[in-house]
Structure formats: structure tokens, C-alpha cells
Computed example of a mutant assay.
Amino acid sequence: MNLVSERSQAGEPGLLRRPRTLDLVGLVARLLLGGVMLVAGLLKVAKPEVSARAVQAYQILPFDLATYVGYGLPILEVLLGALLVLGLFTRTAAAIAGVLLVAFIIGIASAWARGISIDCGCFGQGGTIDPSQTRYLEEILRDVGLVLCAAWLVTRPRTAYSLERTLFA
């Protein structure tokens, strides 16, 4: 059953083209992306040295720069996650989160390609691990899904139950 084409032929907008349905898809994308960013940041914000060690383990950035990035990243993740969960500055927060996720995908793929065995550090751990414990493909696929959520929100930031909609309607 194709709800889009059947309803469209009857002169009504298809279910997947109705503004309310699109707003709910946006809500799911916003809460999923925001929730992951918020949890990832909160798990690291109290232990910035662990986050710094995780960024250093990728061996992409100079050691000192990786340390600064590791200290700042959890704060940025918490901020972006909170904005997305609340539905404030949705397009901007989703765009920044999307860029971060693309950087994470590149970093994970780089570590995988170079044979470096690390935990991605996404949820508070990080650092060198046994090669049998790596989950690079899973991590990349997860981040690709989150990039798709970010892309949806950049192109259609209007979502159900957002503060932005309430305050600026």
C-alpha cells in the first residue's frame, strides 16, 4: 500500500507529505541526534582528561591540539545536544552536529585504515584497545545515521514540540 500515491491521486496530500507528519519525523530526528550528543557529552564532561586521551589516540592532530580538542569537545556536545532536545536554533545546531559527525566518521575510518586499535571515545572511554574489541563499522554506520538526522534538520528544521516553534511562531 502506497499512502503517498493513493492519497495524492484522490486529491489529498499523501501521508508522508502532510506537514504534521513531517514535523513528527523532524521531532524523532531532533530527539535522536540531540539525545546522542547530550549523552555523549555528559559522559565525558566530568572526565576531560579521558576525552583528551581519546582524541590523542586517533593520532591525527598534534598532541597538544588533540588535548585542547578533547577538553572542549564534551562541552560542545552538551551544548548542541541541549539545543536540539529543546528545539532551539535547530538548523544551526544540527549543521554543527553534522559537521562534527562527519569529522568523527573520518577519524574512525582513518584509524581503521591505518590499523590503529582504539575505542572511538564517543561515550566516555577511548584509548588503545585490543584489535578484537574494535567496532569501527558499527560506529561509522551509527554516525552515518546521525548525519542523516542532521541533514533532515538542516533542510527542514521545523519540528513538533520545539521551543523554537513556541517562542518564534
Rank of each mutant, 00 (worst) to 15 (best):
I129E: 04
A52V: 02
A54S: 07
L76W: 10
D64Q: 12
Q9C: 06
I75F: 06
R53I: 06
P62Y: 09
E77P: 02
L24M: 13
P13I: 04
P131M: 07
I129P: 02
G98T: 12
K47H: 14
E12K: 15
F63E: 07
D23S: 11
L167T: 11
G98L: 13
Y58E: 00
L86W: 13
G115Q: 14
P48K: 07
F104I: 02
L141V: 14
F104G: 07
L16K: 11
I75A: 10
A113Q: 15
R18M: 12
A150F: 06
V154Y: 01
S51I: 04
L163W: 13
Q56T: 08
V25L: 15
S51A: 10
A111W: 01
Y71Q: 00
V85S: 07
G11P: 08
L141H: 09
D130W: 03
R53S: 13
G35A: 05
P74L: 05
I140Q: 06
I96F: 10
K47T: 13
P19S: 10
C120H: 00
I140V: 15
Y68W: 06
A10L: 14
R156L: 12
W112Q: 14
R158W: 04
G35D: 04
L137R: 03
L27E: 10
D119W: 01
M37I: 05
A151L: 10
L42M: 06
E138S: 13
P74D: 03
I106T: 09
A160W: 14
M37E: 01
K47I: 02
T134K: 00
T166W: 15
A150I: 11
C120T: 00
R91S: 08
I118H: 01
L148A: 14
T128C: 00
E49Q: 08
P13Q: 14
L3F: 15
V39P: 03
A82Y: 05
T155V: 15
L83G: 02
G124Q: 06
Q125I: 01
G126S: 07
F63N: 12
L43A: 09
A95V: 13
L76M: 14
R7W: 01
K44P: 02
P131S: 11
A54E: 01
L31R: 02
E49I: 05
Q59M: 10
L27T: 11
F89I: 09
L16N: 11
I129Q: 03
L100C: 10
V25P: 02
C149K: 12
P74A: 03
L101V: 03
T92C: 09
L61N: 03
T155Y: 15
L15F: 08
E12A: 12
P74W: 01
E12I: 12
V154D: 03
V147G: 04
L33Y: 01
Q56L: 08
V144E: 13
T21C: 08
M37F: 04
L101T: 01
L31K: 07
M1W: 12
L43F: 08
G14F: 05
V28N: 02
T155M: 13
P157A: 03
C149Q: 12
Y71K: 03
S162M: 13
A97D: 06
G26D: 11
A111D: 06
R135G: 05
